[in-house]
């Protein structure tokens, strides 16, 4: 019996069976574990004994969340996270757009510039953390190394600073390597965007007598805005999850630069599973606020 294509397409049995392994794995490891994590976050498992099941554990509902959000230490982490994300986003968008704009017209050697701007993307945060830890050394004047020494050498002594050792905004120093690492990626996105704009559009604007600014304002920027949004979402959600870079530059013990992901690691290491789980859930909510609307919108657009 020959089924028509459409009918066959509607039957979910066989195709579902084929992707069942993935569905089960994602179902358990993503959704199941998110649920289990939330359950742990409602418990009072704060000690090694409870974590290993040797001591009794109870349920305290949302108390862990209230305690965390009310504590000065965790508020500091959240403040750091938002500061970091702001600088990281601003920096990558600015540099990424600037580089794409500079490279947008065909020119000799463009491939070399593109490859060099993008290469940090291929390196792990841990490896780049090694060199940035050296560059962001807080020693100054006689004992200065790193960027502080470089500033002295080029006569910009006044730029010497504490970098990530500053309690209030030290975290923004760690955003510098993050910008170094991801601006090339934003550039690649914008470049693809620029190249997706049909030349007829520019021509039409020029024929209509548009100035360069008008061309950007009314033709190019609107065409690029979906890409800018993608870039914001990608970098934004990466930033909220930042962990590797901060760990390799300043270690978890540093109050100055701690963020929720670092808190989670510290709680986990001391068997305070309830608080570790609660921090995880808070991060999940933050990321979901950014990502879910985007996914829903994308899904809808496709239909």
């Amino acid at each position: 019996m020959i089924k028509t294509a459409k009918k066959a397409g509607r039957k979910a049995g066989a195709p579902l069976l084929l992707i069942a392994p993935s569905l089960i794995l994602v179902g358990i490891f993503v959704y199941g574990l998110i649920g289990a994590n939330f359950k742990t976050s409602l418990s009072d498992v704060h000690t090694a004994g409870q974590a290993t099941g040797q001591a009794p554990a109870g349920t305290v509902w949302l108390d862990n969340y209230f305690d965390l959000l009310g504590s000065e230490a965790f508020q500091h982490s959240l403040k750091n996270l938002f500061l970091y994300t702001g600088v990281f986003l601003g920096g990558t968008m600015l540099m990424g757009f600037l580089w794409a704009w500079l490279l947008e017209r065909p020119m000799k050697g463009e491939g070399i510039f593109r490859s060099v701007y993008l290469f940090p993307m291929a390196v792990s945060f841990v490896a780049s953390g090694v060199v940035w830890r050296w560059l962001l050394n807080s020693n100054q004047d006689q004992s200065a190394t790193g960027l502080n020494r470089l500033f002295q050498m080029i006569g910009l002594d006044f730029l010497q600073n504490n970098w990530w050792n500053n309690v209030d905004y030290g975290i923004t120093a760690i955003a510098i390597p993050a910008i170094w690492q991801l601006s090339g990626y934003v550039m690649a996105l914008f470049l693809a965007g620029f190249r997706g704009i049909p030349d007829e559009l520019r021509e039409a604007a020029r024929v209509d007598g548009a100035t360069t600014w008008q061309l950007y304002r009314h033709v190019l920027f609107p065409q690029l805005s979906p890409i800018a949004l993608s870039a914001l979402i990608i970098i934004g959600h990466m930033s909220l999850k930042s962990f590797d870079l901060i760990m390799s530059i300043s270690k978890p013990a540093n109050y100055q630069t701690k963020v929720p992901a670092v808190d989670m690691y510290v709680f986990k290491s001391s068997f305070d599973y309830a608080n570790a789980a609660a921090v995880g859930s808070i991060l999940l909510v933050l990321v979901a606020l950014v990502v879910v609307p985007y996914l829903v919108r994308t899904n809808r657009k496709e239909k």
Binding site: V30, I34, N37, K241, M264, K268, Y273, G280, V287, V292
Partner: peptide, 17 residues
Amino acid sequence: TLILFGMFIPYQAVIIP
């Protein structure tokens, strides 16, 4: 979309379990 969401989650939210 449900599969895709798995790529955005902060793994901190699943590590304990």
